[in-house]
Structure formats: C-alpha cells, structure tokens
Design a protein around this nucleic acid. Structure first.
Lengths: 189, 189
DNA sequence: GAAGACATGTAAAGAGTTACATGATTAT
DNA sequence: ATAATCATGTAACTCTTTACATGTCTTC
C-alpha cells in the first residue's frame, strides 16, 4: 500500500499531471519506488475519489487534455500518519540469490556471464547516484529537507555498493567452481 | 516468474509435499524467496500440469492426504536454462526509503521510533544468518554446493549489514531534525 | 492535412496476500 | 467422541506488468 503515498509525496513536492508524475517516477522518486503510467493514472483516480487530492479546475478535463492534481488537507494528513506507521520490512525475494541456490543443484552454466552483466548495471546505477549527490548536495549547510533527500540517496548508494561487493565475491566463487575438469563440476541434467 | 524455479530448486534438493515445502520456505529458501502455502499449492499444480514435476505414486492422492512431488528431467532442464537466463534486477521499491522522502514534506513524526524498530528486526535477522553460517559452514574444505549456499547466505548477511549501517545514519539525521524548537521543524499539515 | 509527440486512459494476465473451507490423523 | 493438529486446497482481492486504444496539439 505504498503507491498512493508515493504519489501524495510527489504531488506535495510539486502539483503535476499524470504524465509529469510518470516522468518523475522514471527518475528521482522511481529510484526507490517505481511505477508505470498505468498504475499512476489508476491511483490518481482512486485518490481523487477518496478526496485526498483534486484536479486543478482551470482546463476542460477531457481525454487527451492535461489534468493537474494537487494534494488536499486530508491527503497531507494521511501521508503524515503513514510516515510513522508500524510497517515491517518486506520479506526478501531476490531472483539472483535464488539462481545461485539453483546453480548449486543444476550447475552454474551461464551464471558467470549474467553476474558480470549485473556488475555493469549496478555500476552504472551507482554512477548515476553519485552524480546526483555531487550535483544536488554539495558540501555546506543543508535544510532539513535536503538532509532527508540526501539520506535516501545515500541509501541507494549503499545498496548499489552492497551489490557490487557481493557480486565480486560471487564471481570469485563461481569462477573457481567453473574451473575443474570437464564433466566433474556439472549438474544433474 | 521465479516462484516455480524456487520450487524446482527446493524439490531437487529434496522431494517434498506441499506442507513440507511451506516449512522449508519459512526458513532457508524463504530467506531469499518467500512464499505462502497457497502460492505453493497452486504452483505445484501448474508444475505438475506442465510435466516438470510429478507426484510420487505410492499414496492415494485424496484431500487431506500427504502428496510428495519429485522433479522430472524437463524440470531440471528448465531450471538449468533459467540459471543462465538474462534477467534484469527488479526495480527498487522500498517503503522505508519512501517514508523518509515523505517525511521531508510532512515532517518526521513517528519516524524515529519506526527506524529503531527496524534496527531491532534487522539485527535479529543478522544474528540468525550468522548462527547459520557458524553452524553449517565451519572453516575448512567445502564442496561446490556448500560454497554456493554459503555465497547466498553471505549475501543475506551483507544485506542486513547494509540496512543496519544505513539505519544508524538515518537515526542520526532524523534525531537532529527532530531537535529544533517545537513548531519550527514540523511539516505542512 | 499528415506525422509525430503529448496525454490519458482500458484490458488482460501474472503474481502475491488474506481469509476461509475441508478432509485425515493423533492425542485425550 | 471430541479437540487439536496436520495437510491440502478455494476464493476473492490487490498490486504489478504488458499491450493496446484514443484523443489532442504542434509542426512541417
């Protein structure tokens, strides 16, 4: 139940139309909560229905016409409530870790290349984050808002760093397993 | 599309009934791919339908009777294919990071307590992993299978460590923000 | 006026969660 | 025999993903 709150946050930061939100979810907000335009439009409808946001009146609200939304007081209140809500971390579901475990029973064919590919992806993401940190958060006095935004970004940086470190270890292990004489290290198939 | 492969892996490690699988998904396998018994039973049905697994004949297969499954050659082949498949990491969706961002616009009320609670949860999980590492992977020669299992476990350990480190940083930031004179540091509501 | 970009949607299928239903076995 | 537990399953709902549909605006 986080998508509505992601949208409320984005709209409080800046009132936007559905497509503008979609674009923002492709960057900053999307770095820790991704969403497609279909999800966003549906959720905007629900939030409006629930009285948490409203469409700015001005334009004629017909299909194909831009429709901007802003957050109503009830929306802010709901978001504030949610910030302090008790909510356990999601159970882990990581396909890559699962694939390692699968490789332990059917052999690691193809796994090494895939690990290397992931290294590249995480490296690129880390570079993106680091560029943002340098650009948006130069050293010096920071507002509370800046500090929290930076905190989130540093979470992303630490997460990517974790992956890169672990992937290096994984490549070392898988590399050694792939080495032994052909026919010895293979799987059950 | 990882649940079927998680089940294939578990069944290759040891043929099991639905409930036995459920129990195993509550521990080892569940540490990186969780699933409920409803998901498992549904998926067992699909996998059997697809000819990737089969129920061991012996028992009468009526409701309330234990039914054990084993993996067929097609199932092993599918799993081996999947191990090397090209598959991008899932886009990040983390409610806690999102809540920090929300706190930047509506204020951090209640957030500090929630962060502390998460510290406790991650600390406990880390202890669980470390106990497993000590018990199942003592120093010394290890089989390929053991090495891969340990690699997965070390991923879990590093992930929990990341969270604990980041949460500490987060508590420091949120603590400093909560300090200023009442009425000054609050949100928009 | 045709093409391409902008903007908002609908439909359907896959995946996960929560609540409930039912039969079999075991212990008291 | 009754209750508790084991074991398998159904149903309904929510969230996410993918593909498609439709209308408007701008530009050449």
């Amino acid at each position: 139940m986080s998508l509505p709150h992601a949208i409320l946050t984005a709209l409080l930061e800046k009132p936007s139309s559905g497509l503008e939100l979609t674009r923002r979810f492709d960057k900053s907000i999307g770095y820790f909560w991704s969403a497609t335009h279909q999800q966003i439009y549906r959720e905007l409808g629900r939030l409006e229905e629930a009285g948490l946001i409203r469409a700015l009146p001005s334009e004629v609200p017909v299909r194909g016409q831009k429709k901007e939304y802003e957050v109503l007081p009830d929306g802010s209140a709901e978001l504030a409530r949610w910030v302090g809500e008790r909510q356990d971390p999601k159970t882990v579901r990581d396909p890559l870790l699962l694939r390692i475990r699968a490789a332990a029973v059917v052999g690691p064919q193809g796994l090494e290349a895939e690990l290397r590919r992931h290294v590249g992806l995480h490296r690129r993401q880390l570079e993106t984050y680091e560029a943002i940190e340098e650009k948006d958060f130069p050293p010096g006095r920071r507002s509370d808002e800046d500090r929290l935004h930076r905190l989130v970004l540093r979470g992303g940086i630490a997460l990517e760093t974790f992956w890169l470190t672990w992937l290096e270890e994984a490549l070392a292990e898988v590399g050694e397993i792939a080495l032994p004489a052909p026919g010895a290290g293979g799987g059950a198939a």
